[in-house]
């Protein structure tokens, strides 16, 4: 192998052909109301943990639904389970349930 002094950049696209979507499916089969998210962002706006860390509940669960589990477990661990997000969610999503379910399902990732 020759070192040319540069590498090959890796593709950044979410690849829905190769991602494991089964785990995502198991998650929203258990908590189908997660699917009703309309990305308003009020959960993230009010999040106690998000105020002091990069935690973005909306973004993390969206990535999980696309089969991108990379940082999800560590990110969800930032949640302080205060429950304010569930109070503000206009679609009444059981957000704490989502946090706990994602952690449970993705513990191995």
């Amino acid at each position: 192998m020759i070192d040319f002094g540069f590498g090959v950049n890796t593709a950044r696209a979410i690849n829905m052909d190769t991602n494991d979507l089964d785990t995502a499916r198991e998650i929203f089969d258990r908590l189908p109301d997660l699917q009703a998210c309309m990305a308003c962002g009020s959960c993230t706006a009010t999040c106690t943990a998000g105020a002091i860390t990069s935690f973005n509940f909306r973004k993390v669960h969206t990535l999980v639904r696309r089969g991108e589990y990379g940082e999800a477990y560590a990110e969800m661990s930032k949640c302080m389970l205060c429950g304010k997000c569930r109070l503000v969610c206009p679609r009444g999503i059981n957000t704490r349930g989502v946090v706990l379910l994602i952690k449970k399902k993705l513990g191995d990732y």
Binding site: A13, D17, A39, K59, E68
Partner: peptide, 15 residues
């Protein structure tokens, strides 16, 4: 197809 998943800010492709 190619699109951006604008809610997470990353390109996305699928067949």
């Amino acid at each position: 197809i190619k699109a951006e998943d604008t809610l997470v800010g990353r390109p996305l492709k699928m067949t």
